[in-house]
Design a binder for these strands. Structure first.
Length: 484
DNA sequence: CCCCCCCC
């Protein structure tokens, strides 16, 4: 792709006789930068607008009226438009009670307006590879119908469906047609944007998670892959791609990734999700991308970037079921059929050190307590074997997991086991030091019956450091709710 | 003729 001019220098689009206003759903407030994409087919130096003469010289619709997109309506039969593809979806299949098929859609723009175009089945085969994002085409003979505003946020009363006689022909001189514009929001700035805002973002893909399959609420299976994008603001944000885009993404070489029309979510703080209407561009040929590449390669890669998105499930105040310990009692948590889960910020008052360590089977993934045979051998009933050695495991009364207890005490079970055997004072000190420390505890609560005696048992699943910003945010929201 | 924008 060739870029006419960096819009950053100009504060807007230059080289276009008219200005195309960003579509409403993007709602940019103060664009900090803008990039133009897709002028590769613009070679002519003589802009032409709706001149029938010009149209007849190079378009198949010689007898058609060249009209602006804004004037398209279902009540005229002969027309040709000349427009640039802003956005193109991938091919999607559907299968419902009314039948099945495939489709793709794209959005076009000219100086007068914009429109959504959908192609089904045979028209998918005919036009999918021809239609390229950023390029200009003559389009004629298609069906116009009232736009379904529920799914089409473009500013036009109608949308277009291609049919067997529809014509799409590349236009060699479309430089007068507005370029596709990106208003990239710096990643640090995402923190101040509203949830559900549709924004354009560009960053270096520092890491890309593996692709995974998830099942949606409506029982559809879909692939997803989360990228972690950073920019020169030193902030990082998680951006999730879906479907084929997720499957095909190759992030091993830290490409620059631009997403036009991503949705800002408040999951885990702030994160982004690509929509069907988003355009994901890997290493796009735009100045922003070149700048980011240089910045990253010349040292940006070493920056300890701070993510706006919580990477772990914990720490974030958004999805945590925060409870106080008295809530657990007052709300009779754990009395249901299934266990309840809650998180609390709590301070460790005391932990028993006498029964905290046990000698476990050294087999990988066994962890069963071994029986000391007092002959130098240790027997594991589960493995039905005797070992000359064992491994220490930690078991605090709150915790089912060795790793959780290790996090709480700040030492590995192995270290503590050695310490107990060699330096009791140091061993005691570890427990002393852990007392009165405050953490986020993620807990499971369940009423358990043992020997005819029922009691609510709280098990700590995970211990995490307190994220004071998130925790304060949660407390403020509680105060806010109390004053409602 | 789709119309799902998902999951933690």
């Amino acid at each position: 792709m060739e870029i006419l001019q960096s819009a950053e220098k100009t504060g807007g689009l230059i080289g276009n006789p008219t200005t195309y206003k960003e579509r409403s759903k993007s709602s940019p407030e103060e664009p900090t930068s803008a990039a133009q994409l897709g002028n590769s087919s613009d070679n002519s130096s003589s802009p032409s607008k709706f001149s029938p003469t010009k149209a007849s010289s190079s378009s198949p619709g010689a007898s058609s009226n060249m009209i602006p997109i804004a004037q398209l309506n279902p009540y005229q039969s002969k027309w040709t438009i000349r427009a640039r593809v802003m956005n193109k979806s991938s091919i999607r299949n559907w299968n419902n009670s009314r039948g099945e098929g495939k489709l793709f859609s794209f959005e076009i723009v000219d100086e007068s307006g914009e429109m959504k175009i959908t192609a089904f089945n045979k028209e998918v085969d005919k036009f999918f590879s021809l239609v390229e994002q950023g390029k200009v085409y003559y389009i004629s003979k298609a069906t116009l119908k009232v736009a379904n505003k529920q799914y089409n946020t473009l500013k036009h009363d109608y949308e277009m469906t291609l049919h067997a006689h529809s014509s799409i022909v590349p236009c060699a001189d479309g430089q007068d047609i507005p370029a596709v514009q990106c208003d990239f929001v710096p990643i640090a700035e995402l923190e101040n944007r509203d949830k559900d805002a549709i924004i354009d973002v560009i960053g270096v893909c520092k890491t890309a998670e593996d692709v995974s399959r998830i099942t949606t609420k409506s029982s559809r299976e879909v692939s997803k892959r989360t990228l972690h994008l950073i920019d020169t603001t030193g902030k990082m944000v998680a951006a999730t791609l879906w479907g084929e885009e997720a499957e095909k993404f190759e992030g091993s070489e830290q490409p620059v990734v631009a997403i036009k029309g991503a949705r800002l979510s408040d999951f885990g703080g702030r994160s982004l999700s690509a929509l069907f209407s988003s355009t994901v561009m890997v290493n796009p040929d735009i100045p922003e991308a070149f700048r980011l590449r240089a910045w990253y390669d010349q040292g940006g890669y070493a920056l300890a970037s701070q993510s706006l998105s919580e990477t772990k499930s914990g720490g974030s105040g958004m999805r945590m079921n925060w409870k106080t310990l008295s809530d657990v009692k007052n709300e009779n948590m754990g009395h249901g059929e299934k266990a309840d889960y809650f998180s609390c910020v709590a301070t460790l008052l005391y932990s028993r050190k006498d029964t905290c360590l046990y000698q476990a089977c050294p087999s990988v993934d066994c962890n069963k307590k071994v029986l000391d045979q007092h002959n130098g051998w240790f027997r594991c009933e589960k493995c039905n074997r005797e070992f000359p050695n064992f491994k220490y495991r930690l078991l605090l009364s709150v915790s089912p997991r060795n790793e959780t207890a290790e996090a709480l005490l700040g030492h590995s079970a192995e270290t503590l086991g050695q310490l107990r055997d060699t330096d009791e004072a140091a061993f005691d000190a570890v427990f002393q030091k852990a007392n009165f420390t405050t953490h986020i505890f993620k807990n499971r609560v369940k009423l358990e019956t043992y020997n005819d005696e029922s009691r609510v048992k709280v098990t700590v699943m995970e211990v995490q450091p307190v994220n004071h910003r998130e925790y304060s945010r949660m407390l403020l929201s509680n105060i806010h709710n109390l004053t409602q």
